[in-house]
């Protein structure tokens, strides 16, 4: 479990995220929502220790982040970055690097690492891509390989920053399904999503950020009822009951 306590962080002297307290419990999918530039990605990076923390603290299973080495953090939490570079190596090699935090002397990946890599590729729906070069894959396929890399890291917590970009609708649904299954297996899954409807259906907890501050956090039901989404996005969020639960959708204020 990862906890943020009154966390303030940013780039240089500028604080992008201010005084956020939030926890990402095991077995739950937490979705971060908010308009562009509200600090969602910064929050993830600060939680992983990728950018300096200016105030407050981050606790990994009760231990402060500052007491952990980057390698120990990498064994506890995986991160799928929003911008991803594409070196021209095979997908298998790429996913194998998810085992980098466990690499020890001699500096070679062990058979066990190869086995976990294979599993991760299968989990991410990329089993057939193992021998392909990253350069020749489509955006969606690359995305799956990146997801497999995060899975190969075999961590209790996964931070996925906009994991559904580049994916077509079927693969988006599959990815959210994978996120749910990971949570059911006891992982803490943290997602940054822009699709309100998908986010509220998938989340156990939704957290709404605006201007670097946390406006509202709770179950999708609570967040919807609080009206925070309407305020923050400047839209009117509605829902409709169907046989498989609530479906959320947004309309602009004028009602068009």
């Amino acid at each position: 479990m990862v906890e943020l306590k009154n966390l303030t962080a940013g780039y240089g002297a500028r604080a992008v995220v201010r005084g956020v307290s939030l926890s990402f419990p095991a077995g739950k999918v937490t979705v971060l929502l908010g308009p562009n530039g509200c600090g969602k990605s910064t929050l993830l990076k600060a939680a992983l220790g990728l950018i300096p923390i200016q105030g407050g603290e981050v606790l990994f299973d009760g231990k402060p982040l500052s007491a952990l080495s980057p390698r120990e953090v990498a064994q506890k939490a995986a991160y799928l970055a929003q911008s991803r570079s594409v070196p021209n190596i095979t997908a298998q090699r790429m996913v194998l690097h998810g085992r980098f935090p466990y690499l020890s002397y001699p500096r070679r990946y062990r058979p066990e690492d190869y086995r976990i890599t294979e599993q991760a590729l299968a989990w991410a729906g990329a089993a057939g891509l193992a021998g392909r070069l990253m350069g020749e894959l489509s955006g969606g396929q690359r995305q799956k390989v990146y997801l497999a890399m995060a899975l190969a890291q075999d961590t209790a917590t996964l931070f996925l920053d906009e994991p559904t970009t580049y994916l077509d609708v079927r693969h988006q649904l599959e990815l959210l399904e994978t996120a749910r299954r990971l949570a059911e297996m006891g992982r803490a899954v943290v997602l940054v999503l822009h699709d309100l409807g998908a986010a509220l259906r998938c989340a156990d907890t939704a957290a709404v950020l605006s201007g670097g501050e946390l406006c509202c956090a709770g179950t999708p039901e609570e967040v919807f009822c609080s009206g925070a989404l309407d305020r923050v996005f400047g839209v009117s969020v509605k829902r409709i009951w169907t046989e498989d639960g609530w479906h959320y959708y947004a309309r602009d204020r004028a009602g068009h």
């Binding site: 990076k45 992983l48 220790g49 990728l50 080495s69 980057p70 390698r71 120990e72 953090v73 990498a74 064994q75 939490a77 995986a78 991160y79 970055a81 911008s83 991803r84 570079s85 690097h97 998810g98 980098f100 935090p101 890291q153």
Partner: peptide, 8 residues
């Protein structure tokens, strides 16, 4: 960032 998140 990806490298750092892998502990490098």
């Amino acid at each position: 960032e990806q490298a750092q998140s892998l502990g490098l």
